[in-house]
Write a protein that binds this DNA or RNA. Structure first.
Lengths: 231, 231
DNA sequence: AAATTCAACTGGTATTACCAGATCGGCCTC
DNA sequence: GAGGCCGATCTGGTAATACCAGTTGAATTT
């Protein structure tokens, strides 16, 4: 026997099973062997095995359920969406301005990438959202939602899921804070924002990344400047 | 009793304990009650309790160990560091290129912000790291580490913790993949990278955000182009 | 052939016991 | 009396076993 087995049984099981998933030995979307057969194969107790499984489940890579077999789930962006707010919340000094900086940094090049890669479907969806946004006349809470959807569709058009995920989380946060501060709303700002959306849309339609970047950055900076300095 | 308790015992325990941590009932850095006392207080078996605890542990909010009490840990970036490779590995298109895009998008404006906000201490640290990096002659694995440290120090100089956190995670992953592909290393690339670090340093010293951005973007694009197209 | 039922899976929970690291107080030595 | 040694007893980690409860699918019944 070794001097001391530094890692616990649970940990080694977790590593082993995670590796099987990453290497594709346990393909995504497919069921893994039952707990009973696994504890035989690996020569461990069900306790240790289940603790390792519960770690995988809490990470979102396993979809378990009472009575059915456990299947490997694709760890998609939802995991990041759960984690990022947690990190942002616990990180001290996570003020609005700092989050906005990240949004600006990400979304500006994202607009450029979207201009390069947008498909016909992307363009159509963007058009719909820009029009829907332009139709909004009321001061109702719909405003931030359609605005958000337009921006997220731009992110979607980059066809980079990581960008989409990050912007999803960050934009949601930024817009939530913004709409909170614009309790009454400023009509003239809306008109400008509506025109800005169409400008961005046209740049993306023309597949002009530089113009898309410029328009997006101007739009974001303007809306940010509207929000009265938040703490 | 309710018709059916939809959530499992483990899940409700997890929620309960996570809430205790978030509300501060179980303060960060402090030990939580022992498993035996918890299973008495909550009226559950040790199995369910331990599975919930293992979920907390896998999220990084609990620091458990053999023989000592479990203490509440602050969720730091390490959680993201563990998750991101997983997402990239399992996401079908979550390739190196997509992660690099995010790094480029974030680090370029970060260099600009660093130029505006760097303190004297930031500058000194950057200088040390650039020099240390320049001294590296061997092909040893030190190369990526000092390179990473320089870049992270640039992020640090933005004094935006969210940028620091995100770049910490993303750069780590990008550089890990890069160093993996540069098995032999290309000396001429090193020289260029060393000069690039000094160029960035000088721009930050001069507090010239535009130049810092340009230099950083050029540096990143060059090193990325070196990595032989990684699927 | 279609609907129904039931038996054999599956994962979820509970009980009990023991192992091993960590701790701290009392004891022994100096 | 002060300091180091040591073990009783805390802690979490692992194990074996049993049973509960959804799920499933094949055999049975209509």
């Amino acid at each position: 026997m070794l001097a001391t087995m530094r890692v616990t049984t649970t940990q080694s099981l977790f590593d082993e099973m995670l590796q099987r998933i990453q290497t594709g030995a346990w393909p995504v979307g497919q069921a893994i062997p039952s707990e009973r057969s696994l504890m035989q194969e690996m020569g461990v107790s069900r306790i240790a095995l289940r603790e390792a499984l519960s770690m995988l489940r809490s990470l979102g890579v396993l979809d378990t359920g009472h009575g059915r077999k456990s299947v490997v789930r694709r760890v998609s962006t939802e995991l990041l969406e759960r984690i990022l707010p947690l990190v942002c919340a616990l990180e001290p000094g996570g003020s609005y301005g700092q989050v906005f900086e990240v949004r600006l940094a990400l979304e500006t090049p994202a607009a450029g990438l979207a201009a390069l890669r947008r498909t016909g479907a992307d363009l159509q969806r963007l058009e719909e959202l820009a029009n829907e946004y332009a139709r909004q006349e009321t001061v109702a809470g719909h405003y931030p939602r359609t605005d958000l959807e337009f921006h997220l569709q731009v992110a979607q058009a980059t066809h980079n899921p990581l960008i989409t995920t990050l912007l999803n989380v960050i934009s949601r946060y930024v817009i939530a804070v913004q709409s909170h501060s614009w309790n009454s709303g400023i009509p003239v700002a809306w008109d400008r924002a509506k025109r800005a959306h169409f400008s961005i849309l046209e740049a993306i339609r023309a597949q002009d990344p530089d113009r898309a970047r410029v328009e997006m950055e101007a739009h974001l900076r303007y809306t940010a400047a509207l929000a009265p300095a938040i703490k």
